[in-house]
Nucleic acid binder design. Structure first.
Lengths: 193, 193, 193, 193
DNA sequence: CATGAATGAGAGTTCATTCAT
DNA sequence: CATGAATGAACTCTCATTCAT
């Protein structure tokens, strides 16, 4: 009973995590179902009990990683602290999450830049962005941030985090505390009043 | 013969541009050689007289588009004008180039985020970044820009351009003159002293 | 227990009828066990408590439908009536049975024309044909029918019924009473003295 | 040039004939592409240069065999000879064609009784039946045949030929000249005035 | 007896690459 | 250099069957 349910969950998770790892290592192609099956420790056919198709695995993975990212982002984000401090906290939350989960980051970037992504997935973006959009909107209303389209502000901020993560993960420039501080400060100066 | 050479160049260009278009439309996969051949108006085997493999086409395409981008970036960048004006000019050059050549932009982003890219291509990056790196370094030495690792500054600036282009091309937020101005100003405030 | 046995019979019947329906709709392929199970309202494994294999289901179905056909054929076939009238009655019995049970007809035709059928099933044919063969043999002996090999006579007669049913079920020519009458008469004229 | 064209035709023909043989031997399933390729002496991929899909091979085969059948049927069918003689000739033409080409016969029967066949293929039937329909219609107008729907007459006649061929090919009753004569006579009596 | 998740061989199809012309 | 038919390994996905529960 319990065991069975756990086993089922385990296999589904194994398939998802194996797919994530393979795509991160080799790209969307070079992640054939046969290899996913082998590395996940299941038979090829078993995958199709949990997912309808390869595309569905990838979409499920996208939703999962987006959710994880959303949760990580909002950590330690109580009402306490100044607006600026909260801004710094959010930035660092996201950065830390990606640095600690490089596969997740690389997958999301690959997905975002592939012509897979359509209107459908954009909706999920909206769902995730909601608290952030609110936070940015609030900052503008209260006069902490300069007035511009929220989409633009979000894109610039998120883009800076992404840039910093890429720099770090690619090995081009390891982001120590000082550099992270500089990057956050730069982002803040870019949008603050 | 001049004619023959031109024909050869034409075919090579046709193959490259067709590949660019197909990858942009359908992603790295769904750009099979057979379709490239058909759309480029050449036989399948002919491609292999001009390129050793499919990977080589993509690499050649990457070099080509990086070069075009470099040339566009440095346009109208004489010594005249203040440092800030030149900064603004560079930013806009890059933005305009990408908006006018969306296929080029989408290809470069896809390429950059695929695990294809290795050490080899990083070298070419350096070659392209050289004038920019000099310009940024100069800004720091002269006190226009705050001191930080040049790689970080470049990543933040380039990242902002990319964010703005994506916003525009995806249709999420069309970048009119005012918004472009806001974006450049934000980037400038992020790195200026 | 009576109840249990009924339940068992129900499941067996459900499996058989579902298989019949699926094969008729989609052909021998596109009638996968998983779909049979789902539509019959049983688990995949349950089927294997009632049948050894998929082939066995089909063979059981063949025997079942042949039996039903045999029973329908001999209806209202008392000794009363002239030989010719009985002949007409048999023809119409068969025709009506097939028109009322199109799935049965289509299945039998598909089965008969597939290389599945071997010597084994031919034996069952003999068992079913027996009363008919007797009737035809009697007709020849009594001088109602012309002398020819009984197998040939049976084949021609049965073939005519099949032709009429196909015409009707395919929609090419709906068989009203007049047309049925013409078809029977034609068959009769083909074999009568 | 000539050689190339011949080779192309040869491969296409080899694929068609191998498919015909395999389907006849094993049924529509159990004729996998891999086996077709092997037995036809070509690579798996080569098949797809000549046909878009497996279904297309089967459709092409159907059209081909229908055409052959049509040609065989009309042989030796000059205006000379009485109507009855021509009728006998046509019957025998068809019978002989099928007996000499059992694979063709078995394939056509399998195809006709599979749910593959749709409206599309019915059109081709019409195209083939045209001369026959004319001939039957003429016989009715001239008073040689009894009046009934032409579709019915054609179905009964064709059905009788099919019955005789099946009897012969299945081994149930080898059709010698005498039996063929009896079968034709029976068909004639079924529809003649 | 019933279940249904798991199996894995094999299905149809694709595609980068080759080579005789 | 150009051609495009041919290749065959590799791909995604299916399905009859099994077995632990």
């Amino acid at each position: 009973m319990k065991k069975k349910q756990t086993a089922e969950t385990d296999k589904k998770q194994a398939i998802l995590q194996t797919t994530l790892a393979l795509i991160t290592e080799n790209g969307f192609h070079n992640a054939p179902m046969s290899v996913i099956a082998k590395r996940a420790g299941v038979a090829a056919g078993t995958i199709y009990h949990h997912f309808e198709s390869k595309e569905q695995i990838i979409n499920a993975l996208y939703a999962l990683e987006k959710e994880k990212m959303g949760l990580a982002l909002l950590q330690k984000a109580g009402q306490d602290g100044t607006y600026k401090n909260q801004f710094f906290q959010f930035w660092e939350n996201l950065f830390t999450h990606f640095v600690k989960n490089p596969a997740s980051f690389l997958f999301l970037e690959q997905f975002a830049n592939s012509p897979f992504i359509g209107q459908v997935t954009r909706e999920e973006n909206k769902h995730f962005y909601l608290p952030v959009i609110e936070f940015i909107g609030l900052g503008m209303k209260k006069g902490f941030l300069r007035k511009m389209d929220i989409e633009l502000a979000v894109a610039l901020i998120y883009g800076n985090v992404v840039s910093a993560v890429k720099l770090h993960l690619s090995g081009e420039l390891k982001m120590n505390n000082k550099r992270v501080e500089q990057a956050i400060q730069a982002t803040w100066d870019a949008v603050r009043k």
